[in-house]
Design a protein around this nucleic acid. Structure first.
Length: 588
RNA sequence: GCGCCCAUAGCUCAGCUGGAUAGAGCAACGGUUUUCUAAACCGUCGGUCUCAGGUUCGAAUCCUGAUGGGCGUACCA
């Protein structure tokens, strides 16, 4: 609709001899209750037009209609100039763009973007919060890829530290040699089991110590289990053979488990970073910062940066004993990633509890004069809460990722069987379909919400399969494919179409927005925009499907146009859903 | 205490850089199938956009303050 912006600028110049900018032209979709497709807001023009917005609207409308054959009609209501686009123009748009294979495919740019997501700890299995993270990261990567960027999907695995030692220690003490094979437990769940056992035993020790007269703080510090865990961490850092072996063994179990979950979710990575490799990085940057005077040393040798001028605090970047803190390694890892890939942008998909951390991290890198720091972005998302409050791994109040996925698939199976829609499916096709629908429901449920917002998940209310949901969109796609296969012919050419129905016009208008939607979603890192678009397409198509016959139309041109419109809708829905990591079936 | 984020229908969410009578889904109620898949379609019901000021021709949207909720404010990650 670019020509309209230019057209309005031209009209204003011709009529009122006033130069206005593109951003002064306010175009919006015409509301349903009025005639037209595109609305120009003319309030701002009345000032220099020297007449009311209504009269200015009428004049601009007349001018536009005279100059542009695309505009078939217009009406003015208050400060709103509603323009109707001609059927001829809509058909041209459909033929030249929407129905083409290349519709919504952007040219490749030379920009590289890294999307870091998932970033699990190897002491417990993934839960619903991780699912949100993984789906967001994967989808944003797909969207940026579709927008033409080269993408590196990265996973920074937190595979070391005191929390990992806790599960290791508990397994060593209470595990009796249990393995995934011996127990039938998935490796990550096995590790998680011992993480919980550690916490339970540790709490018992604390109680005993408190009963024996220690303060709570002292008890937490002095509990023998915690002392042992700390000792184990020191041994790990000293490369103790026995500890390292145990660490490798248990982590291997966990990775095998994660792989299964990642595969279920359909997410993948191009590059893994492991904290065990990167946790010592960042010391060079500390030196660099000291040399540049960005950091300063205190008497105890600890290194700090003063961010009070930026409204933040003083921040420790290196301990007095020379060991790293979280931000030290993140500084180093940021540098390493940059050296590895030289990307233009780097997106960190991390929960909003780390907003402050990333603010500080990016600011420090800017102060160090890293030119690439401008391309860093924290894609912050809200926590997933249960009606009972926050999920806590240690206390076992989590919605487990694997469990949830199986439940979704089981529900999909049950619903589909109830509807009796799988006649003629092989067992394999059925399983594939149930998985597609179950995951479609789950993914859409999580991705349709703006990342920033916190999300409420009630395990007692199953995720819907009707209405504004993934399966609704999947169903629409299957429905279209069914019509197309019944049509038989592959020749969908048509001529002599001059008139469109209202619903056809709406559908064409909606489809035409797809490239702009991908562009916005890429700029805002927002799968929710894609989700809303796909829903609108499906909704409009179902309306069209209901109102207009397709195969039964006698006029071959009309029939073929409607088939072509159906096919274009199916293709666009498929493309959009693909950006969300959701597959669409041929039949359901 | 200080900082950041959020607040829209009974519930879950949309609402683009300020623009028309604030939209969907679920739930409730009613209707649609001898016709291309009823996981659908159509209709009814449902909102002082948390509150109070301000800016503007115009505010759910911008500014200030208040209230409620979340998160952070560690020589944890």
């Amino acid at each position: 609709m670019d020509f309209l912006v230019k057209g309005v600028i031209e009209a204003v110049k011709a009529l009122y001899d006033k130069e206005i900018k593109e951003s002064d032209v306010n175009l919006q979709e015409t509301r349903k209750e009025f005639k037209g497709e595109v609305t120009v807001v003319t309030f701002p023009f009345s000032r220099f037009a020297g007449k009311g917005p209504e009269q200015a609207g009428a004049e601009i409308g007349e001018y536009l209609q005279r100059q542009h054959a695309e505009i078939s009609d217009f009406n003015v209501i208050k400060g709103f100039l509603n323009l109707s686009l001609s059927d001829k123009f809509l058909l041209e748009t459909f033929n030249k763009s929407i129905s083409q294979e290349s519709f919504g495919i952007f040219e490749r740019t030379n920009d590289k973007v890294m999307v870091e997501y998932s970033s699990p700890n190897t002491n417990k299995p993934l839960h619903l919060g991780h699912i949100r993270n993984n789906l967001l990261g994967f989808s944003v990567a797909e969207i940026l890829d579709a927008r033409g960027y080269d993408i590196i999907k990265a996973n920074l695995v937190n595979d070391r530290g005191i929390h990992i030692c806790k599960s290791m220690l508990a397994w060593q003490k209470f595990g009796n040699g249990e393995t995934p094979e011996s127990s039938g437990l998935k490796g990550d769940h096995l590790a998680g089991k011992y993480y919980v056992i550690f916490d339970k035993e540790y709490k018992k020790e604390i109680e005993h110590l408190i009963a024996a007269g220690q303060s709570e703080d002292d008890a937490k510090k002095n509990a023998p289990l915690m002392a042992e865990a700390r000792e184990m961490l020191q041994k790990w850092e000293a490369n103790d053979a026995e500890v390292i072996e145990l660490w490798k063994r248990m982590n291997a179990w966990v990775y095998a488990g994660f792989d299964v979950t990642y595969k279920s979710l359909g997410v993948s990575f191009d590059k893994y970073y492991y904290e065990s490799d990167t946790y010592l990085l960042g010391k060079d940057i500390i030196e660099e910062g000291l040399a540049k005077g960005v950091f300063f040393k205190k008497e105890d040798n600890s290194v700090w940066i003063d961010l009070t001028a930026d409204g933040l605090d003083e921040k420790l970047v290196l301990r007095g004993d020379g060991t790293s803190v979280y931000i030290t390694q993140d500084l180093g890892t940021a540098q390493l990633k940059q050296e590895d890939f030289g990307m233009n942008q780097s997106i960190y998909v991390v929960g909003n509890e780390q907003d402050y951390h990333f603010k500080v991290l990016f600011l420090i890198l800017k102060k160090l004069g890293k030119s690439w720091a401008e391309g860093l972005y924290h894609l912050s998302y809200g926590m997933v809460d249960l009606p009972s409050g926050k999920m806590k791994s240690r206390e076992g109040t989590v919605v487990d990722a694997d469990d949830l996925i199986s439940e979704m698939i089981a529900t999909a199976k049950q619903r589909t069987e109830e509807l009796g829609k799988v006649d003629g499916f092989t067992e394999e096709e059925k399983d594939r379909l149930y998985r597609m629908i179950g995951l479609g429901a789950l993914k859409y449920f999580l991705l349709k919400v703006e990342p920033k917002k916190r999300l409420l998940f009630d395990p007692n209310e199953s995720i819907d399969f009707q209405g504004h949901t993934g399966p609704f969109i999947q169903y629409t796609h299957a429905r279209i494919r069914s019509v197309l296969s019944k049509a038989g012919s592959t020749d969908l050419s048509f001529n002599n179409i001059t008139e469109l129905t209202q619903t056809e016009r709406e559908l064409v208008m909606n489809l035409s927005k797809y490239p702009a939607v991908v562009d916005s979603a890429a700029r805002e890192f927002s799968p929710a925009l894609i989700a809303a678009f796909a829903y609108d397409c499906a909704k409009l198509y179902n309306k069209f499907y209901h109102e207009e016959p397709i195969l039964k139309v006698e006029d071959l041109d009309v029939r073929n146009f409607r088939l072509a419109l159906s096919e274009a809708t199916a293709n666009t829905i498929k493309k959009a859903m693909h950006l969300l990591g959701i597959e669409v079936p041929e039949r359901m």
